[in-house]
């Protein structure tokens, strides 16, 4: 059901863990929905020099966290903000339709961590360009 790439990132997840004194932290999801992602960033001169995650969730959630942290490392905050859920899913050589929300969670986690950093810096948080594009039919978990 999963691509080889998803299985690779599930079985050998990159960037699992915490960062000491992180510059930005984002936690998204809900245990009731069955997935939570915690993403933390080290940021130097507007560039993400390190990204780590911890995830409670299915194989796709773990693989999406792993791939998302890989994609944003070394990027400027502006570039990282543009990493979409689709980019995460594409880099994983696709996700099953019912698992696309896992990649959405990864995008949201990155955004939340970047805005956490911006707030700490006294900057205005960036606004989600198109928040409704993240709503995936009946994929919302509303417990």
């Amino acid at each position: 059901m999963y691509s080889d790439k998803v299985m690779d990132h599930f079985k050998n997840p990159r960037n699992v863990g915490e960062i000491e004194n992180p510059d930005g932290v984002g936690e998204v999801g809900n245990p009731v929905c069955g997935d939570i992602m915690n993403i933390c960033l080290k940021i130097e001169n507007n560039v993400i020099t390190d990204a780590k995650f911890k995830t409670f969730g299915c194989g796709a959630a773990i693989a999406s966290s792993s791939m998302a942290t890989e994609l944003i490392r070394g990027k400027t905050l502006e570039e990282a903000w543009e990493v979409s859920n689709k980019a995460v899913a594409d880099a994983l050589e696709g996700l099953p339709p019912v698992k696309m929300h896992c990649s959405v969670l990864a995008e949201e986690g990155i955004h939340k961590a970047i805005n956490d950093y911006r707030k700490k810096q006294g900057l205005e948080p960036w606004v989600e360009k198109n928040p409704h594009s993240h709503e995936h039919e009946d994929m919302t978990c509303d417990h």
Binding site: V16, E18, V25, N38, K54
Partner: peptide, 17 residues
Amino acid sequence: REMSPLYKGGKGGCNVQ
């Protein structure tokens, strides 16, 4: 569990402030 932010036995991810 080691990679779960819910697991109290581990560090549980970075603290959200």
